[in-house]
Design a protein around this nucleic acid. Sequence first.
DNA 1: GATCGTTGTCAGGAAACCTTCAGGGACGGC
DNA 2: GCCGTCCCTGAAGGTTTCCTGACAACGATC
Lengths: 229, 229
Amino acid sequence: MHGEAKLLVVDDEPNIRELLSATLRYAGFDVLTAADGREAVQVAERVRPDLVVLDVMLPDMDGFAVANRLRSSGRRTPVLFLTARDETEHKLTGLGLGDDYVTKPFSLEEVLARIRAVLRRTRADLDLPSRLQVADLELDEEGHQVWRAGKRVKLSPTEYKLLHYFMVNTGRVLSKAQILDHVWNYDFGGDRNVVESYVSYLRRKIDTVDPRLIHTLRGVGYVLRAPRQ
Amino acid sequence: MHGEAKLLVVDDEPNIRELLSATLRYAGFDVLTAADGREAVQVAERVRPDLVVLDVMLPDMDGFAVANRLRSSGRRTPVLFLTARDETEHKLTGLGLGDDYVTKPFSLEEVLARIRAVLRRTRADLDLPSRLQVADLELDEEGHQVWRAGKRVKLSPTEYKLLHYFMVNTGRVLSKAQILDHVWNYDFGGDRNVVESYVSYLRRKIDTVDPRLIHTLRGVGYVLRAPRQ
DNA sequence: GATCGTTGTCAGGAAACCTTCAGGGACGGC
DNA sequence: GCCGTCCCTGAAGGTTTCCTGACAACGATC
């Protein structure tokens, strides 16, 4: 999967670094990490990652400085910046096309989506599918659109992220905790009842016709799957 | 795309060089870079680019001198000059036919438009389409004209650039940050509310009839697209 | 220097969205 | 069949996001 794309995760907070590297490894990427700018540049020169996930605030150097150093060698490595919400405003002029950014606190689904989008643009050879399909349920990642039984369905951002998470994990049982961890921001402190609410919303919008695709497993979680043919 | 036209980007500022080369690569060009005049001449002699994007102010030699050297070999390579706003006036007498210029700070849309225009003139074989169309919305790049439902619509420069960016990316969701980065000058530090304002202006001029083409994706961005047939 | 079109900022109001809460229904264990 | 737990869903509050009209600054043109 992903043609074993190599990623470099750079963040000084061990928690974030671990959260990301574990998630990305599980998603099938080859992941390396660095805790500061100096280390990042060193590692990048040695291993030539396909993409760098880069915190803008590092103890030793500015994230954009790191990005420049990464590219000074002539190699054009795309970067996904991680930035605090306030910094967004417009320091992001350093953003080349092909780059992108995500604001902290992020949700894992968001990071994954951005990474896939960037890789899709820069590594056409990977040929990541941008269209997911389960039975007569279709999701277009580029256009952010969803159809059920050929009919367009409008979803709110959270509904969309939830459905996307389900579709990427078709046939796999997902616990509410897992869903919470992936779809909601990592600092979300609320009730896990949100998940129930949103599953409910989703069902209303995409799962009112047969065959039903979202199934409840009492005490375990939810699965999205098509009935055995 | 673009028949893989080969471009040479010459600028001594790494940021600008990267911004341009990343953008142009993404737009489908084959891009090489040089940091000064000497290097530019060397590279150009070896690879014979179809067009050179050339900063006028280089550390070692004047941009026009570089342009002359490029042509001394008898080859007539078109040049897109990058110049500071003040320098424009007098010096642009060096502009040969087929050349063009853009003032710094530029917007990426502007640079792309100029490059396409120059290539269209000099490489008829490329046969770049100069007419974009989405449903009954038409845009003529050469004539800078726009029609909706057959009726001519007058747009301000910014409105035009915005619409053009939308049309080149039909069906793709564009975040406000992306739009800001492409349509506005790279040093623009203002609010992203400008984007909302201009989308609003655009809608008023070209999107008051059905089918609506510009769609808002709350929390995500905007898309231009015709409804699925 | 006056005028007009264009541009960017601001702010009010409207709409969409997220989250919580609570009542009732469904399910499983006994 | 009964009970407790888990789940579904409707309602509602508070927040965020978006749209649009008003306005001032700016530049081009005459």
